[in-house]
């Protein structure tokens, strides 16, 4: 698929939108008409051509504009990118995995040439060319995680593995759904998942942790997560809550379609070979409800999912203020017809 990069914004005038092709490939997360937490992990293997699952790191039409937004966030708040000192080997692991994947999967856009530890990286969309020594951070303008993190869509955290636990000891997080790396850095798997309702009682996190501790090299896994965001804003961080929290009060029956967005995260988990750490990629996709209902199945199903969503999840995902308005608006698109299984369009 030849990519044309859009020039758009995720703040102020919010010019972001999806092309018809991008709508069709949106990873709609609901496989049935209701939603509950589960350990919905599957192998992160090559998906259908053109889908968001085709490659380990999906690059799409929003790439250039998303990277510009990330640079703005980092400029305003450098604490969005942090790595504890013992994570340097894991940083290099991440840089290698991302560069190798992007150069292999998008050869028209990215080129990596390696001669021993002398590496040459070309990023055509962002007009970057860099020669550096793998393993020597002084040969890059930023530390390795930040260097490649500024050139790949999605947020990333890196988990160190010790004491049969995972510890969030590094990350570059600029487009998060209301959580803070600055707050979570150094926490373990149970600690940073502390605020999640219902799932602890279901034993989800014990099972997920046990699975992840045994995650193998070359066998990455993925899952989908979701929430909703008012306006196509990438940076819905606690640090900037004063800027976006009030947006939730602006939803009216007239503007639901433009304002309310389904936000889906395709989360990938990769064992990093040298450091034995785990790379967690959080690749976000936004879709306005106006655009979502162009797929009739999605309009029907989202209406039903929101109607039956448990109270705890409504609160946790921050939907309380506009859920009823949104359900009312979506009801126009739900004729009661049965929906097919799976998330894809019919």
């Amino acid at each position: 698929m030849a990519l044309t990069f859009k020039d758009e914004t995720f703040r102020d005038d919010f010019t972001f939108s999806n092309s018809p092709a991008a709508i069709r490939r949106f990873p709609f997360p609901f496989v049935e008409d209701k939603y509950m937490y589960s350990v919905n992990i599957e192998p992160h293997t090559t998906g259908p051509e053109g889908s968001v699952f085709e490659f380990p790191f999906d690059i799409d039409e929003h790439y250039v504009s998303e990277m510009r937004d990330r640079a703005m966030v980092l400029q305003e708040d450098p604490a969005r990118c942090q790595a504890l000192p013992h994570m340097m080997m894991a940083q290099w692991d991440m840089l290698e995995l991302v560069m190798m994947s992007m150069a292999r999967d998008y050869p028209d856009l990215f080129t990596l040439t390696r001669d021993g530890s002398k590496w040459h990286w070309v990023n055509r969309p962002l007009k970057i060319e860099q020669t550096f020594t793998f393993g020597d951070a002084s040969t890059l303008p930023y530390e390795p995680m930040e260097y490649i993190g500024r050139q790949v869509q999605g947020d990333f955290s890196i988990q160190d593995q010790r004491d049969n636990q995972l510890w969030m000891d590094a990350g570059i997080i600029t487009s998060q759904a209301d959580w803070s790396l600055d707050f979570d850095v150094g926490m373990n798997f149970f600690e940073w998942h502390g605020p999640v309702p219902l799932a602890h009682e279901a034993g989800v996190f014990e099972r997920a942790l046990k699975f992840l501790l045994n995650l193998q090299i070359s066998n990455p896994v993925r899952r989908l997560n979701w929430t909703m965001t008012i306006n196509p804003r990438l940076d819905t961080s606690p640090e900037n809550y004063h800027k976006w929290g009030k947006d939730r009060t602006t939803v009216t029956p007239e503007n639901v379609g433009q304002k309310v967005h389904l936000r889906v995260e395709m989360q990938g988990l990769f064992r990093l070979p040298r450091s034995n750490a785990i790379l967690f990629s959080i690749r976000g996709y936004l879709l306005s409800l106006d655009q979502l209902v162009t797929v009739p199945k999605w309009g029907r199903r989202l209406h039903r999912v929101l109607k039956t969503l448990p109270e705890e999840l409504i609160g946790y995902k921050g939907l309380s203020r506009y859920r009823d308005t949104t359900i009312e608006w979506l009801s126009k698109y739900d004729d009661g017809a049965p929906t097919s299984r799976g998330g894809g369009p019919d």
């Binding site: 010790r162 193998q216 090299i217 034995n276």
Partner: peptide, 12 residues
């Protein structure tokens, strides 16, 4: 099989 590490040195 691919390598698996159940005996890693503690980095701290």
């Amino acid at each position: 099989s691919e390598p698996l590490n159940l005996f890693p040195p503690c980095k701290l």
